[in-house]
């Protein structure tokens, strides 16, 4: 039986290859070429409106960046903003996804709430930035006034975009605001795919909702949780629009550093706003560094959550399922 199964697998294997082919063909043309172009550029001194043919090879961008305080600060900023956004986002999304997909849900309006929570994600980043800037504007922004009346801001002349931590928290909050509905939808879609009979069996066995969550929902959701973590990590490390639009990476700090300049904003500044010296080589090198950082952290995340993402069969789960089958 086993041999026969193997032979069949090999025969069908070719279909797998054909199925994934379109992706890689399009990827090769429209994504790989631009990326290679940039990587090669990163090893040259290509700048401004130079002719590509005149560029010479040099490694100095890479060495310069490692000691550049502004670049290093941008890495720190990226992580700070990402963490303040991500941790609450995961907690809240999970909580509400579980709530809304709970079989015993008696709370009304889950459908409406889901729609409402996703709405922030639909609006473009540019519009979001304008709206929030408006709300937190000193001296007449609505929320700015509200917070001052409530005592959240103690100094009546406090201008949030002039304060390094204030701006960071604002940006993190905006990112949270934009994405927690998105994360919620994904987790909810995944939770809905879980066979309700598991929960029924668990309730019969006397398990509490919390216990069901941790023993059934989370493990079965592992692939999706991994997806959420990775996409959030990648998105967070590449965060660009909101920091750029709210404060252009500012306010400035001593030492030539900027408070909310994430790595992507730094890259953009170097590549497109360096006056005449649009330093593409430097920006490309910074991009390569960013890629390496993302790679390392993704690898760690994958390792932590197990190799199941790469595996075909659910080696761990199969036995469980068949057990359940027998029981029920």
């Amino acid at each position: 039986m086993a041999l026969f199964a193997k032979k069949r697998k090999l025969n069908y294997g070719i279909y797998g290859f054909i199925f994934v082919l379109p992706f890689f063909v399009v990827f090769l043309i429209f994504q790989l070429y631009p990326i290679l172009y940039s990587i090669i550029l990163s090893f040259t001194n290509y700048q401004g409106f130079m002719d590509v043919k005149d560029a010479t090879f040099t490694f100095s961008q890479y060495t310069d960046l490692i000691v550049n305080p502004r670049f290093l600060q941008s890495i720190v900023n990226t992580f700070i903003i990402w963490m303040i956004n991500f941790v609450p986002q995961v907690v809240v999304s999970f909580l509400f996804a579980a709530l809304f997909t709970s079989v015993n849900l008696k709370m009304k309006g889950a459908g409406v709430f889901k729609i409402v929570y996703y709405l922030p994600n639909i609006v473009t980043a540019a519009s979001v930035a304008v709206l929030f800037k408006n709300l937190f504007n000193y001296p007449d922004g609505i929320i700015d006034k509200l917070f001052k009346a409530m005592g959240v801001f103690s100094d009546p002349t406090y201008n949030i975009v002039r304060d390094a931590w204030g701006t960071r928290i604002l940006i993190s909050f905006i990112q949270f605001w934009r994405y927690f509905g998105y994360t919620l939808l994904i987790l909810a879609a995944a939770m809905m795919g879980i066979n309700p009979t598991y929960y029924e069996a668990a309730t019969i066995d006397g398990a509490s909702k919390v216990k069901s969550f941790f023993s059934i929902t989370l493990p079965l959701l592992r692939p999706i949780v991994l997806y959420t973590l990775i996409t959030s990590l990648v998105g967070g490390l590449q965060m660009f629009e909101i920091p750029y639009l709210i404060c252009d990476g500012g306010p400035m700090m001593a030492g030539g550093r900027w408070a909310t300049e994430t790595i992507s904003v730094y890259i953009y500044h170097m590549a497109f706003e360096g006056g005449y010296t649009n330093d593409y080589a430097l920006a490309s090198a910074a991009s390569v560094y960013l890629f390496l950082i993302v790679l390392v952290f993704s690898f760690i995340t994958f390792k932590f959550f197990g190799d199941q993402a790469f595996g075909l069969e659910k080696k761990e789960k199969q036995p469980k399922k068949s057990k359940e089958k027998e029981d029920v």
Binding site: I35, S38, A283
Partner: peptide, 9 residues
């Protein structure tokens, strides 16, 4: 891979 820089290429 960061999206922005692929822009030029």
């Amino acid at each position: 891979i960061p999206g922005q820089l692929g822009m030029i290429g």
